[in-house]
Amino acid sequence: MHSITKNSQDDAQLRRMIERAFGADQVPQDDGFAHEFTHGWFNAAYRIDLGDGTPVALKIAPPAGVAVLTREHDMMRAELEAMRLVIEQTDVPVPAVLYADLSHEILDADYFFMDFIDADNFGIAAAEGRLTRAEIEAGFRDLGRLNREINQIVGPHFGPLLGEGFGTWREAFGAMFEDMLRDGEAVGIDLGWHPDQLRAVVADHADVLDDVTEPRLIEVDLWGKNSMLRDGRIVGIVDHERAIYGDPIMEAGLTSIDLEGFDEAEPFMQGYGMAGLTPSERARRRLYSIALATVMAVETSYRGHVDMSTYNLARECLDQLMAELGHTR
């Protein structure tokens, strides 16, 4: 997908990055050594075939001069921290980081190489009709099981993995939501609702956030398209850049509880071991869905989208959620 945040590079620059990471003897001499993945919206990502034929994956953060959301500053560094935590504290399959360069000496952005996972992208395979219904449900049960294991990691605070956090989840979520609204106001995005209306609705229902007392590592963005499937099993979890310490009920696998058009929550919940949501969890989930719909709308401006389908969907979702809380325009 086209996005102005994608920091794509030509072959000459990719060869310089390969040499820095793996040495001159691993620099490919022939053309066709780099294949760019196009389905993501934020980072540039490649399969790279090294000089000896070994495939690796390369991920490149947005260029320094491109505006990103507040929460997206230095996000690749947070991703590296999330990967470290998951690798060290769980058995969840995460590709090993082979080399990370945060110096900006040969490129105006962070980047890192990691193991290449030779498998199908689960979400893409499902969307293209290459999986049976039973295979899709089994994949989401597997994803739920793995997501639960990730959520067992306890953090030192709520909010960002790196830097200062918050003492309570209410503070952390409130700060994240405020950043989303301010990012939208900065570019004049029309959410269909005045930002103060959305602020007031979240504030009116924020008491339930105090029920979250232990900061857990949550991926936030663990969809089918951020997992890799081989022989009916999830063999790799990728794209950890949005991970934070927070409430597992915010995980993407539960989105369809509120919103249509997203991956079914039931098999995910079965794999997770979640029979249902308590009243507090249900109320919290609705707040997280409001935040998701808000950021979906706002980020379309920061990505330079021409196709307005995501923006239109986000507006519809916000209208639905606000109506459920007794608010109509």
Rank of each mutant, 00 (worst) to 15 (best):
T300E: 14
Y302I: 13
L58P: 13
F122T: 03
D115S: 02
L259A: 08
D31Y: 03
P215E: 10
R148N: 04
L131M: 13
L161K: 14
A293D: 12
F173P: 01
M1F: 07
P195K: 03
T300W: 01
L102G: 10
D319F: 01
R303T: 12
I60W: 08
Q89G: 10
R315F: 00
L58V: 12
R284E: 06
G174N: 03
G192A: 09
H194Y: 09
F112Q: 14
R141G: 04
L277F: 06
F122L: 11
S289P: 00
A24Y: 02
D183A: 01
H2C: 01
L287R: 00
I290R: 01
R130T: 03
R15M: 01
F116S: 10
K6F: 00
V208I: 12
R84Q: 10
E36W: 05
V202F: 11
T328R: 12
A206C: 10
A12L: 07
P156T: 15
F33C: 08
P62Y: 13
Y302K: 12
G236N: 15
G276S: 15
N151M: 10
L143S: 02
L229Y: 00
G159H: 07
G188D: 08
I244D: 07
N147W: 00
I257E: 10
H157V: 00
L85M: 15
R282A: 13
V202L: 14
W223P: 08
G144V: 09
L85I: 08
L277E: 08
I124N: 15
R286F: 00
Q197K: 10
R47A: 09
D196I: 05
W223A: 14
L69C: 12
G167C: 01
T300N: 06
I257T: 13
D142F: 10
D319N: 03
E19C: 11
Y46W: 02
T168W: 01
D49G: 06
D190R: 01
Y245V: 04
M308K: 11
H2M: 11
R141H: 04
F166M: 04
E149D: 02
E260Q: 10
E149M: 03
V86E: 14
T278Y: 05
P95K: 11
A109M: 02
A24K: 11
W223V: 12
L80E: 02
E316A: 15
A297D: 01
A297Y: 00
G165E: 02
I244K: 14
F140S: 00
D118N: 09
L287H: 03
L102Q: 06
M322P: 07
Y272L: 11
D179A: 08
D74I: 02
D31P: 07
R77C: 14
